[in-house]
Each structure stands twice: as C-alpha cells, then as structure tokens.
C-alpha cells in the first residue's frame, strides 16, 4: 500500500440557511479512490469549487470521509488515537503565509511544531537548522517573519512542516499570493524536497507551468477525479482542460495554436526546448 491511499472517499456536508434549517446536501468529494506511492510528486488541478482542497484536507485528517476510507502510511484517518501521528506523517501548507506564521523570529516559528510534540531541545534546534537549510532560508533564521517577502514567508511555512519530519507534504495553492520570484523560489524548494529528500509531495495549484515536473497529475471536477496521467498526457488534452475551466502552460498552448494552423507538431509539448526541437524537425522535412 502506498503512503496515501483513498478508497471510495465521499465527503458530504449539509448546507443550512441563517436560521439553521437544512437547505440541502453538497457532495464535495464523490467516490474518489487513489493510491500515492512514497516519493511521488503528485499535482492536483481543478477549478474553484472542484473539491481539491476538500480532498487535500482528508490527507491530514482535518476532515474525515462521510463514506470510504483514507489511509496515511497505513493508518486509517478516522481512528482518533492516530490523529497526532497522521498529522506528523502528512504535513500541510496553505495559501496565505501570513496565516501560518506565529513566531516572532524565523527559527522560533520553525521550532514551534517539534516543540509541541515534546522533542528534546537539542533535537529541535537540529531540526530547525536542517529544515531551514532545505528551503534555503537558513541565513534568515534570526529575522522577524514580518520583514520577509511572500515567497520567503511561504518557505518558512514549509520549513515549519519539515521540522515535524513528515513523510508527505500537501501544499494547497502555496504560490497563489506570490510574485513571480516568490513563486519560483517556492516551487524550487518543493522540487528539491521531492528530488533530494525523496519526500512525497502533493501540490495543488492553478498555475499550470508549476506542475510540468510532476510524476502524476490528477484533475478534479465536481468532486471526482476527471483526468489522471503524466503532465504530458494531461496537457495533450487542451480542449478537455479548457472545458474544466483549466488551462495549459503557455508553451503547450503555443504548440497547440501552431498545430491548429497546420504545423505538424506532437501533442503535449511541455518545454521551450521540446518545441524548438520539434519545429526544427518539421522544417527539415
């Protein structure tokens, strides 16, 4: 069994009006099954309201399935006595860095998690140092988080999760509020986690170009997994993605546009290099 496994997971909630009367039932996640292996880089796409964040919150037991089961490293998330262990195994990073940072000094903030689970002081400091180095924020360890840029703050948030020594990290739109440099910094840190540290990464995003290095992509729609495949397979289906309110990276879109104008190119081009090579090939024909 993989690090994260979901079987027939459904999550429903009851909508109520102001007086608390039941208005109806919303199914936010609808019979989702998936199996994620240790060390995989998974990307989750989906329009606003497609259920991707709701699904993500099942992975570290913020939400429990109405039906079905989620296992994190073999632990059933509905077993309450495993809760702490599950949250340490699967850490989560959210969209807004300002809502996740509590410490007055960067290193204190990163140490907060391990301190709360009773790690000995010496080891806390080791973990803080190691985590900050992984995300490239070690030199800022004595700074106040208030004075950092968005990308730097978000990397401190990631370090805070890493200090808990999770096996898996879930990032829910970590770059939505960042400028281009901040986005690049965060994505670079996330890729290093996966490549160098071998950590399982689940990245939820609206930026298509951030996921071209993922091993697998899930596309969610109406609470279900509508598409699944490698980035190349997914981004070959331009029209389907557009129907799901999504997009493809600009290079893929450019290749698609050229195809429509009669240039013979393969589907699902992901990088400028590939496009250049393919174009030069067509020229020589």
């Amino acid at each position: 069994m993989g690090i994260i496994k979901a079987k027939d997971v459904t999550f429903e909630y009851i909508r109520r009006d102001e007086d608390g009367n039941v208005e109806g039932l919303t199914t936010a996640v609808d019979h989702v099954s998936l199996d994620i292996k240790q060390g995989e880089f998974i990307a989750v796409l989906g329009h606003n309201g497609s259920g991707k964040s709701t699904l993500a919150k099942h992975i570290n037991a913020i939400l429990y399935p109405t039906e079905g089961t989620v296992w994190v490293d073999g632990m059933d998330t509905s077993e309450e006595d495993k809760l702490w262990h599950i949250r340490q195994t699967a850490g989560m990073v959210f969209q807004n860095p300002d809502n996740q940072i509590i410490g007055q000094v960067v290193e204190e903030d990163v140490g907060f998690g391990p301190e709360n689970i009773g790690i000995p002081t010496k080891e806390i400091w080791e973990r803080v140092e190691e985590s900050l180095k992984i995300v490239g924020m070690y030199e800022f360890r004595k700074h106040s988080p208030n004075k950092l840029s968005g990308g730097q703050k978000q990397r401190v948030s990631i370090a805070g999760v890493l200090a808990m020594h999770p096996k898996c990290i879930v990032l829910d739109e970590p770059t939505a509020m960042l400028d281009p440099r901040g986005r690049k910094e965060v994505i670079r840190a996330v890729r290093a986690l996966n490549d160098v540290e071998g950590m399982t990464v689940i990245l939820i995003t609206h930026y298509m170009e951030e996921i071209i290095h993922a091993d697998r992509v899930f596309v969610m729609d109406k609470g279900r997994i509508a598409m699944e495949g490698t980035p190349r397979e997914i981004f070959s289906r331009v029209e389907e993605l557009k129907e799901l309110r999504l997009d493809v990276p600009q290079v893929t879109l450019l290749a698609y546009e050229l195809q429509k104008r009669g240039v013979g190119l393969p589907d699902g081009i992901l990088t400028a290099k590939e496009l250049a090579e393919a174009l030069l090939r067509t020229e020589n024909v």
């Binding site: 440099r181 600009q250 450019l254 546009e257 400028a272 496009l275 250049a276 174009l279």
Partner: peptide, 28 residues
C-alpha cells in the same frame, strides 16, 4: 523579481536554437 511572460522566454529559446523568430511577442 519579475519576469516577462513565458512566451517571451519561449521565443528566445527558439531563437537560440536557430529559428529566426522575432522575440517581441508578449501573447500566445
């Protein structure tokens, strides 16, 4: 800390690889 749109990079890459494209375009 900014960057031109991705297409600009793509065109620059195409040019580096020997395709005679103008790199001014900013939209797909």
């Amino acid at each position: 800390g900014l960057a031109p749109p991705q297409v600009t990079y793509i065109l620059q890459e195409l040019r580096r690889r020997g395709l005679q494209v103008d790199t001014d375009a900013t939209t797909v």
